[in-house]
């Protein structure tokens, strides 16, 4: 009989904590999304072209001149900030306990929200407002 959960993945939260269960599903959903988004992003920006040529001006006037790319980049940003910050929260929960954990997770959440805000603001402010 196979084990109920993978030996490397986080066990699916049992019990009544619906938030933790939602986070468990969202980690997998955003992970799948990033498998497509982040890998294609890396392929396009680092393999099919060279970041050395992607200057500030190029980003603002070429990459983000197309609204589709601004939507793609904004969506990817939200996915990656959620996935990476919740991932680091898992690591904190494994190694830190008590009040320090509460404080660190709160700081982490704040940094994540600020980072997402800065990123979305950069995408929105470039080359005119988004539709």
């Amino acid at each position: 009989m196979a084990r109920l959960y993978s030996p490397v993945g986080r066990p699916k939260p049992a019990g009544t904590d619906r938030t933790e269960l939602a986070i468990w599903y969202l980690m997998r959903l955003t992970g799948l999304g990033l498998f497509v988004f982040a890998l294609s992003h890396f392929l396009i920006t680092h393999v099919l072209s060279d970041p050395a040529n992607q200057t500030s001006e190029w980003i603002a006037t070429h990459r983000w001149a197309n609204d589709l790319w601004r939507w793609v980049d904004s969506s990817m940003l939200v996915l990656v900030v959620f996935h990476s910050f919740v991932g680091v929260r898992t690591v904190l929960q494994d190694y830190v306990g008590g009040r320090i954990r509460v404080v660190l997770v709160a700081i982490l959440a704040l940094v994540g929200v600020v980072l997402a805000g800065l990123g979305i603001w950069a995408v929105l402010s470039a080359a005119g407002p988004m539709p």
Binding site: A2, R3, L4, Y5, S6, P7, V8, G9, K12, R28, G31, L32, L34, F35, A38, L39
Partner: peptide
């Protein structure tokens, strides 16, 4: 990405573990 996909596969199809 690849190992994450492996985790997802095993989470939803436990026999793959």
């Amino acid at each position: 990405a690849l190992n994450g996909l492996r985790i997802i596969l095993m989470d939803f199809w436990p026999r793959l573990t």
